[in-house]
Each structure stands twice: as structure tokens, then as C-alpha cells.
Design a protein around this nucleic acid. Sequence first.
DNA 1: GTCGCTGTCAACCGGTTGGTTGAATAAAGT
DNA 2: ACTTTATTCAACCAACCGGTTGACAGCGAC
Lengths: 115, 115
Amino acid sequence: MLTDDLSAKFAALADPTRRAILARLTEGEASVNDLAQPFDMSLAAVSKHLKVLENAGLITRGKEAQWRPARLEPMGLKGMAEWLEHYRRYWDSSFDRLDAYLNKIQKGDPRGPRN
Amino acid sequence: MLTDDLSAKFAALADPTRRAILARLTEGEASVNDLAQPFDMSLAAVSKHLKVLENAGLITRGKEAQWRPARLEPMGLKGMAEWLEHYRRYWDSSFDRLDAYLNKIQKGDPRGPRN
DNA sequence: GTCGCTGTCAACCGGTTGGTTGAATAAAGT
DNA sequence: ACTTTATTCAACCAACCGGTTGACAGCGAC
């Protein structure tokens, strides 16, 4: 198992099926059958995908009768967003300007991203 | 091979070694030997990691004499950042306020993230 | 209770990944 | 020319991943 939280999240998103499931869940919680409907794959396969997303902390699952609805975990993506933010200067020109300003008025922050 | 660009990027980042390499490259370009130095693994293994990062479009590689320095590809992470941005409302309370405002003054954008 | 629906579990399979080692390539130094 | 330095290639290996199938468990309805 990937014990590293960030690795688990990135790995979970490195699959189009799982990203599609997340996208679907932005519309609200859904059962395994609902989520499986667009895909040409077995229910068991979708169930496995949901387990990966759950272990990565990206979704949570409930229990209603025989249904196990999945829903987005609101904070699930925050850690990745924060990791990415450290690199914003490398693609976002508006960040460059802010960065230059901050470096001008105070000592620059030499801290690199933690892994 | 993962032909899907976003999948390749997420998969490339789902490894602490590769994230550490990226972090190191924010300090400037580096040779394979430089990059391998912190790790208890062979040069060939690091070379493979660099190939994964290169195929994902996260780094580029040069050629100076017998060195093949790696450097960050500035736009490499942009696509992921844009993908993540669609989910910002789910963790960022300040986005909630903006979102509420936008929904108030105009029809909400029902477009989900593309995978 | 038993039927039907929903979902998970376990075993299996082929392909990929992350590492190793040893040989090969390429350029620079002597 | 030979040696050293930097890096890659090829073959191999164990572990993991994404899928399958078949059995089974939970719950509601009849």
C-alpha cells in the first residue's frame, strides 16, 4: 500500500475512470450502480475504483439500506492543491509579478515544496 | 503506455522520488548524478524516473558534453492546476463566497471538469 | 423464507512499474 | 590511444494495477 498520502492522491487521479467518477460526484452523491452506468466494465471494477478513491481520502461512503452511496470528500484535494501552489510561479505570469513584489518588500521564502 | 496527458502527469507525481526531483529542479537545472545524490538507488533508476517526468511533459533535458541536464518545463503543471481548479469550491471557503456571488448575478456554470 | 437487487470479496490473469545488474555509448582528460 | 566520467540500454525480477469471473452477504418485497 502507498502509505504516503500525497502519493495515494496523485495515483488515484492517474486514471480517467476515477477522474470521471469524481466529476460525476460533483453533481451529488451516487450509488455504485449509478457510477458504473457510463462505463463498459463490471460493478466489481467500479467498486475497486471507489475503494482507491476512498483510501486516498477523496471520497467518503455512506450506508443506506443496501446502497453504499459515495460522495466527495470536500477537503480531499486540498493537499494536492497546496503542493501544486508551490510551483505556480513556473507557469503563471501573474504569480511572477506578485512574487517579484513580495521579494521586494521582504526576504524571499527559500522553502521548497515538501514531498 | 498512458496516452492520456493528464493521467501521465498525475502518475508521474504519484512517486515521492519524482516529486523530490521536481523540487530539486526548482533550484535550477541538474545532472543525473546531482539528482541521484540524495537517493539510495542506482543511476539507472534515477534515469528512468527522469524519463517518466520527461514523457509527462514536466521536465525537459539538454545536452552539454557528456551531461544531460534536466530542467523544469514551466508549463508542465498547468494542465493539472486547471483540472484541480474546477474542484476548488469543494475545499476553499473563499471560493464559496465568490461562487455564491457569481451564482447570484448570473446563471451558474453547470459545466463539469473534463477528464 | 426466498426472490431480486445491490454491493463486496477472493482468486486469478496479463501488463505495467520500480528497482537491480552488467554491458554499451559518448565525450573529455591525460 | 587509453582512461575516466556521465549516462543510457537491455534483460531480468518481484510487486502492483486494472480488469475479469464466481461466490456470497445485506436488505426489502412478496
